[in-house]
Write a protein that binds this DNA or RNA. Structure first.
Length: 417
RNA sequence: GUGGUCAUAGCUCAAUAGGUAGAGCACCAGGUUGUGAUCCUGGCGGUUGGGGGUUCAAGUCCCCUUGGCCACCCCA
């Protein structure tokens, strides 16, 4: 029995899965960098206040935060998401707008772990600060869409909604409060608690008894101001112009309280469990201000790495593989020759590995085979005496003895072995 | 946090009505004294997640605990 294992909801990403993760973030970076986004690397730890601004009606803040007092008596927390950090960073450094950044890395939420839901989970995402144009909403959504396409996913669906301008939103919230309050005890207890904190979130309930009241609830669309309608119409027109299919879902309300106007979510078609939200985002025009910066409009999205990868598994796409070796050096005369040859090969740009512990040739050949190396470079007594090496292409098995000094040139000239 | 369910070698699983654990894969070593991926032989490997209890006897029953998974919740 091992003395230790990972804490609940924490896990090791082992090879070869780890190389897939790296490829995943690389594809993401390629997509967004091509659109002018640059990477921001915020700290994992922030002042607790940065996150409490996200909203006191969200569990992410009230129940799931990894917060503690550090040795300097500061109230700090492991970030539960990165949007707040980006906004804090903006308020702190005041970069020129539009500020287009992307990020990738782990977040922490103290929840009951499940498949596709971990206490340490990775997200990739982008945020843009300082632009009000609905065409930016379109760009942001389009980039996520493009990313899914690059991965090869075909069963992702996009749902969008608008929460209206802040005033629209508050009027709607009041209407909901009145509507659900009228239901009284017919509403589940959980929903009554949610109602007291944030009526919007009651729409998210999946509890059976709540269903009829949710169905009969007021529609956000009836509360839009002209301004909100214009913005949302423009977003939809833009999505259509780019041939990005979407579904309007007036009852879509996202978890974090800071959203205004456009919000959207991506759902996986294959994992139809409670964990089918692959990613999502929206506008959060008041967040920077709440963090002490100038009134600045913002929009962005975050995509869950784990869930997206699960969706890839289900669709049988994006099975990135680790880099194969070019050569595996088999040395049966002590190991020094292998040390020299691997160093030479690596300096010449070849990926090369070797056997250790002076194992038998048979054992080393097995290692060469397992390593997936293109060729085995074999050195024994005869080769040392003749100053040669044997180059054995593992696929064909058709080996050649060549002068040692010509090894690099030989391999360079026979890349397809 | 609430409820449910599961937990046997590194991995996937077996083990009759409770009688003191097996297989395949993987790994290692041999099968022509220099050469792998097939095949053959052998080997390594488990105080049955951990602790306690019932029993002559528990992987198999009971309790506690740890962890995975599922639903709620929440969200990525």
């Amino acid at each position: 029995m091992p003395s230790f294992q990972t804490s609940p909801g924490m896990r090791d990403i082992l090879p070869p899965e780890s190389s897939r993760w790296r490829a995943f973030t690389q594809v993401f970076a390629d997509v967004v960098e091509a659109a002018g986004y640059q990477q921001l690397i915020p700290p994992l730890l922030e002042d607790l206040g940065v996150f409490t601004r996200i909203g006191d009606a969200t569990d992410v803040v009230t129940k799931e935060m990894y917060d503690f007092v550090d040795k300097g008596d500061r109230r700090v927390a492991l970030r539960p998401e990165q949007t707040a950090s980006v906004c804090r960073s903006f308020a702190q450094h005041r970069p020129v707008t539009p500020w287009k950044v992307f990020y990738s890395g782990p977040n922490f939420r103290y929840e009951r772990p499940q498949r596709g839901r971990y206490r340490q989970f990775d997200q990739v995402g982008i945020e843009v600060l300082g632009v009000d144009d609905p065409m930016l909403d379109v760009e942001v959504i389009a980039l996520a869409w493009e990313f899914y396409e690059q991965l090869g996913l075909q069963q992702v669906s996009l749902i969008v909604n608008s929460l209206g301008e802040p005033d629209d939103r508050s009027h709607y919230v009041e209407a909901l409060r009145t509507h659900f309050a009228a239901a009284g005890d017919a509403l589940t207890e959980q929903s009554r608690i949610t109602l007291a904190k944030n009526p919007l979130r009651v729409l998210d309930s999946k509890r059976e008894p709540d269903a009829p009241f949710i169905a009969s609830a007021p529609q956000i669309t009836d509360f839009y101001s002209d301004e909100a309608t214009a913005h949302f119409d423009a977003v939809q027109a833009g999505l259509r112009a780019l041939d990005i299919p979407f579904t309007l879902e007036p009852k879509l309300v996202r978890g974090l309280d800071y959203y205004r106007r456009t919000i959207f979510e991506f759902q996986g078609g294959t994992l139809d469990s409670a964990q089918n939200a692959l990613g999502g985002g929206g506008r959060y025009d008041g967040l920077v201000e709440a963090l002490g910066g100038p009134a600045t409009s913002g929009i962005g999205f975050a995509l869950g790495v784990d869930r997206t990868l699960l969706a890839c598994d289900d669709e049988g796409v994006f099975a990135a593989e680790p880099r194969d070796l070019d050569a595996f050096v088999v040395d049966v005369v002590g190991g020094i020759e292998a040390a020299k040859l691997t160093a030479e090969l690596r300096q010449a740009g070849f990926a090369a590995d070797r056997g250790y512990d002076n194992r038998s040739m048979k054992a080393q050949m097995k290692l060469a085979n397992r390593s997936n190396a293109a060729v085995a470079v074999i050195v024994g007594e005869e080769e040392v005496d003749a100053n040669t090496v044997v180059v054995k292409p593992m696929r064909s098995g058709d080996q050649q003895t060549i002068p040692r000094s010509e090894l690099i040139a030989y391999l360079s000239g026979n890349r397809n072995l």
